[in-house]
Design a protein around this nucleic acid. Structure first.
Lengths: 237, 237
DNA sequence: AAACGCGATTGACCCAGATCAATTTTGGCC
DNA sequence: GGCCAAAATTGATCTGGGTCAATCGCGTTT
């Protein structure tokens, strides 16, 4: 939201010991290519609430999330907001056809990204089809997630939305940390509401209701799934 | 919905005079490649209401829509349906990571597709990065549309949804037929409702309301935009 | 430790859109 | 044309979730 004051890592870094080496776009590259790739990206830090890029901005860079969580959202002229997704480490951002980002991205808590200037990155891809294939895979995965989310937004009740959100978020955490019934929620209630197409009051009331029924416990910075089976039944997959 | 009885074109065809030659995946191929490509696809016809593929099906083919309109949708176990998009000529269907289609596709009216068996198509792509790049472009375009649709589903009122739908549909027609204030609507009111996350009654009432206000006229098989500016104001882009 | 600020929760009430229930219109089909 | 079934429209009523308005909890500042 506030003007972005970024911190650029002064010293070099090595892709080979990058935390997302195995899951991000770069997982498609050979060690030799990786060394060349290393020179294209620079690590950039954003602190909580900073905007990494805005919807209407002309795309000058692509981003590979290394650490932290970002909210990806679109605004209507009157200020209504829809969060179209959350980006986690390994996610690749910035692909578009129009030449402009078609959503905005803010850091939720501290975030580190690997930033690539558009032109050199485009040239690098040019003769590396396996990198293109990897980007394509990520796009197809996101498309599938987007369609699932359309079902949630268009056809699910508030209870189902919240339950599905908790399970979905746990599922995504699973890849990074291990499996757990404790779901950390770094985003605000307002973020959750804007992701689920609800109001903050409804999200809050639904959490409280789930807690009263013994399905979850609201803990500091997250939710504990006391009765995962109950929550799964509510999400009605 | 009913069991699919497809009609396969018995005689050969030529990509070079295909209606979607310029806009589909194949637009990325050279004339020489096109001749080879020709042998991979076969034209298949579906009649109104037939299912081209289902959500849970294992993907054995990719499809290039040549003619007609398809509804792409997901069902919840209890029968609630969300239409995640409509496919028009030039659209490419079947890409996924899971090995299964993650939505179903029905013909709305008569449909012709160019069907490719998965394996040979995959092999053909292998050493043709420009085809892969084209597929990637189409995926990115769809992703952008999907995000726009999430905003509509999550944050817009019924009036806004219907108005935005009419304008969006006119926009898509524009590419195929010329510009026009007459918007043909081949899909049913139920389809529109399931696309917009509304009920059929609300869609019908909203059309009637727009007509009473002089913004549109409900005509046979579609809508005429009497006052496009009014409809645009309602859609509140 | 009092005062502040901000996110989260809770309560009271309201309304857009869903649901339920008839019609009416349309489109084959003999 | 007349008959039937499906789609669309319209009306009456209901309700899930929104809106408005306190209040609470808690970390931060002074």
């Amino acid at each position: 939201m506030k003007p972005s004051v970024v911190t650029i890592e002064p010293n070099g870094h090595f892709c080979s010991d990058c935390g997302v080496r195995g899951s991000a776009v770069c997982s498609s590259l050979e060690p030799a290519e990786l060394r060349e790739f290393e020179h294209l990206g620079r690590r950039v830090h954003f602190s909580s609430g900073e905007t990494v890029f805005s919807e209407e901005d002309i795309t000058t860079s692509f981003y590979n999330v290394l650490d932290g969580v970002m909210r990806l959202y679109k605004l209507l002229p009157d200020g209504r907001r829809q969060i179209v997704g959350f980006a986690l480490p390994g996610d690749f951002l910035g692909m578009n056809l129009s030449g402009r980002h078609n959503f905005s991205a803010d850091a939720i808590g501290a975030v580190t990204v690997c930033q690539f200037a558009k032109a050199p990155f485009g040239r690098f891809i040019e003769d590396r089809p396996q990198l293109l294939r990897r980007i394509n895979e990520l796009a197809i995965r996101e498309l599938s997630q987007a369609r699932d989310h359309m079902v949630l937004l268009g056809r699910r009740s508030a209870d189902e939305k919240v339950a599905a959100f908790l399970l979905g978020w746990r599922e995504r955490q699973l890849a990074h940390k291990g499996p757990s019934d404790t779901v950390p929620l770094p985003m605000s209630r307002q973020d959750i509401a804007d992701y689920l197409g609800l109001t903050i009051e409804t999200v809050s009331r639904t959490f409280t209701k789930l807690e009263r029924h013994g399905a979850i416990e609201i803990i500091h910075g997250g939710i504990s799934l006391l009765d995962p089976a109950r929550v799964e039944a509510l999400a009605a997959a």
